[in-house]
Simulated assay, not measured.
Amino acid sequence: MRHAERTASDQTVAEGAALPELADGDSYYVSLGGGRFRSTIHAQGAWNAHEQHMAPASGIIAHCLALHDPRPGLRIARISYEILGLIHAGEFEVTVRTLRPGRTIELLEAELAAQGRVAIRANAWRLVTSDSSAVAAVEDRPIPPIAECERWDGSTEWPGGYIRSLEMHRAAGHRPGSGTVWIRTAHPLVGGAESPDWVRLIGLVDTANGIATRVPPGRGSWAFPNVDLQVHMYREPRGEWLGIDNSVSFGTDGIGLTSSVLHDEQGPFGRAEQILTLRKS
């Protein structure tokens, strides 16, 4: 769950100041055309009411990367997101360009800018696909299926419209610092637009930093926002459910790490990492 280095004035809305007008609706975003979008209440962040959650924000960037000069026979295998500042709620723009063109390997870059500054910069490797089934093997272990997990309401721990938009199921053995959760959403990423399964699932991955919190978030405890999100996919995921099997480590000098193995209903398909800045709240 998102964040980056920012000033104290960025982190809270001044007392008595109005929150941005967050549109309601079925989707996380409304397209305004030309790479411009408006966030709805479903994209609202957990750390601050006037920002977007990194999860749907990373999803809308993945959506734009998927639309950029599509290449049959290639797919995105890794996306690296750097969170450069508060992701303002409301209107914003996503721009995409090809940094390194190639016949079998390409590097793309995307930027999400809001209120005159870049909030997220992402690089994505797009690689040629081929039949490697003869040597295919996976070391990541499967997780309990959804039917064996109990329904969990993440909004009892986290505020914000994004968390309220999710259906979540938690596996047995869940504890602070380690847990397994299945997540899906009934809301489309962009109103009136189709997104591939992998894009919609990428738009849920950043939830990982909030599913097995080592310490409760909030005043009088610790804040542990992530400043990045790295997603590697050795298989293209399918379906509507994202399984996250994660662990959270806190170091002794104010830095932590959330590490996750990512699953769909067919099994594991990749990994995610989030570096954390630990701050006494």
Rank of each mutant, 00 (worst) to 15 (best):
M1F: 14
R2H: 15
T7L: 15
T7Y: 14
E15W: 09
G16F: 07
L22F: 06
A23W: 00
L32I: 04
G33A: 11
F37P: 13
R38K: 08
I41N: 14
I41D: 11
I41C: 09
Q44E: 15
W47I: 03
W47L: 06
N48W: 10
A49F: 13
H50T: 03
E51A: 09
Q52R: 14
H53T: 06
H53M: 12
M54H: 14
M54C: 05
A55R: 02
A66V: 01
D69I: 02
P70V: 05
G73F: 03
A77L: 00
Y81H: 14
L84Q: 08
G85M: 07
G90I: 04
E91Y: 08
V94P: 06
T95C: 09
P101Y: 11
P101I: 09
G102K: 02
E106F: 01
L107W: 08
A114L: 09
Q115F: 02
Q115E: 04
Q115I: 11
V118C: 12
A124W: 00
R126T: 00
L127N: 06
T129V: 12
T129I: 00
S130Q: 06
S130I: 09
S132N: 11
S132T: 12
V135L: 11
V135D: 08
A136S: 09
E139A: 15
E139D: 14
E139W: 12
R141P: 01
R141A: 14
R141L: 15
P142A: 10
P142Y: 03
I143Q: 07
A147W: 05
R151E: 13
W152F: 13
D153T: 12
D153A: 07
D153I: 08
S155D: 02
G161N: 13
G161V: 08
Y162M: 12
Y162Q: 07
I163C: 08
H169Q: 15
H169D: 07
H169I: 11
R170F: 08
A172T: 12
R175W: 02
G177T: 04
G179K: 05
V181K: 12
I183Q: 11
I183N: 05
I183H: 11
R184K: 12
T185G: 07
A186L: 14
P188T: 11
P188C: 06
V190A: 03
V190E: 11
V190L: 04
G192D: 05
E194N: 00
P196L: 06
P196V: 01
W198R: 03
V205I: 09
D206L: 00
T207F: 12
N209S: 15
N209G: 07
N209M: 15
A212G: 10
R214W: 15
R214F: 15
V215G: 12
G218I: 14
A223Y: 14
F224R: 06
V227M: 05
D228V: 06
H232P: 03
Y234K: 03
R238T: 13
G239P: 04
E240W: 02
W241D: 14
L242H: 10
L242E: 00
I244C: 08
V248G: 01
S249N: 05
G251A: 01
I255Q: 11
I255G: 11
G256Y: 10
T258H: 13
S259P: 00
S259V: 10
S260F: 04
S260V: 01
L262E: 01
H263S: 01
E265G: 02
Q266Y: 04
Q266C: 03
Q266T: 04
G267V: 01
G270P: 00
A272K: 03
E273L: 13
E273N: 05
Q274R: 02
L276C: 02
L276W: 01
T277E: 09
L278A: 12
R279I: 05
